[in-house]
């Protein structure tokens, strides 16, 4: 029996939703505003978007972000899927600690330890100079855990007797894995991959530490812009990024509604 909710509860909830959405709406609205100041509505313009598409640095950064996102999400999806299945099937001692701790600690700590590590390796072996490669390696390290959790959740929902049936019918373990387990957990794997891609595209803190001087990603470029001045060009790039995220969420909800919910 559900009681009617008090009016003030609704008021509080609506205020909280406004608190969550109004800032983002403001960013998008001012990206179309014909004024340098993000203060008052002056008139409609697409100038800020036009400017954006002529901003070489921003375009390079966007290209880098996409490349890093694709490579690190592919690699972390493979590693995370293996880890997710292993976490579900076996009682392991070190793997859960290694894979899940990076999710639980502040990102800053991983950034600090990785930058020290990369510089030392570079001094000793002459490889892994700070740049795109070190960003990718770092992104993989913090995405593996997220993918593993999504895949493990999917494994937990799987009917084990399917694999047993396949084995009884003469499938080798590998065949049973490829023809039964893999298709069943595929929505989880895809959801995990999309999640890893979003995390990578989004990441600021770890990238900030491991990027070195040469390489820039979209968040790093946005950061250096807003440190100098607040301009509607930032609003424009932000709005485009929000659009991209929205598209990814729609894809994810089509592919795997349950996986999206379990982790959101």
């Amino acid at each position: 029996m559900a009681k009617k909710n008090a009016w003030w509860l609704w008021a509080a909830a609506i205020l909280t939703y406004l608190f969550l959405y109004l800032p983002l709406v403001i960013v998008v609205v001012f990206s179309f505003n014909d004024s340098r100041l993000n203060a008052e509505w002056v008139g409609f313009t697409l100038d800020w978007y036009r400017k954006l598409f002529h901003n070489e640095k921003m375009l390079t950064a966007a290209g880098n972000s996409l490349m890093i996102g694709v490579v690190s999400s592919l690699a972390s999806t493979v590693l995370g899927t293996l880890a997710g299945i292993a976490l579900h099937k076996y009682k392991l001692r070190f793997l859960p600690f290694l894979v899940l701790t990076p999710i639980a600690i502040p990102e800053l700590l991983m950034g600090v330890s990785l930058v020290i590590f990369f510089v030392i390796v570079n001094q000793l072996l002459g490889i892994l100079e700070l740049g795109l490669i070190t960003i990718i390696l770092s992104h993989i390290a913090f995405c593996v855990g997220f993918v593993a959790i999504v895949v493990r959740a999917r494994m937990q929902g799987m009917d084990e007797s399917l694999v047993e049936a396949a084995r009884d019918l003469g499938a080798t373990p590998f065949q049973a894995f490829r023809l039964v387990t893999l298709p069943v957990i595929m929505p989880g794997i895809i959801a995990g991959a999309l999640m890893a891609f979003t995390l990578s595209i989004d990441d600021f803190v770890i990238t900030f530490f491991t990027a070195g001087v040469g390489a820039a990603t979209l968040p790093l470029e946005i950061y250096s812009m807003i440190k100098i001045a607040v301009t509607p060009e930032v609003n424009a790039v932000s709005s485009l990024l929000m659009l991209l995220t929205l598209v990814l969420i729609v894809i994810a909800s089509r592919v795997s509604p349950s996986a999206l919910r379990a982790n959101g």
Partner: peptide
Amino acid sequence: FWSNFLIRIYA
């Protein structure tokens, strides 16, 4: 929460 972290701060 899915939109970029920096954008949410910038807002």
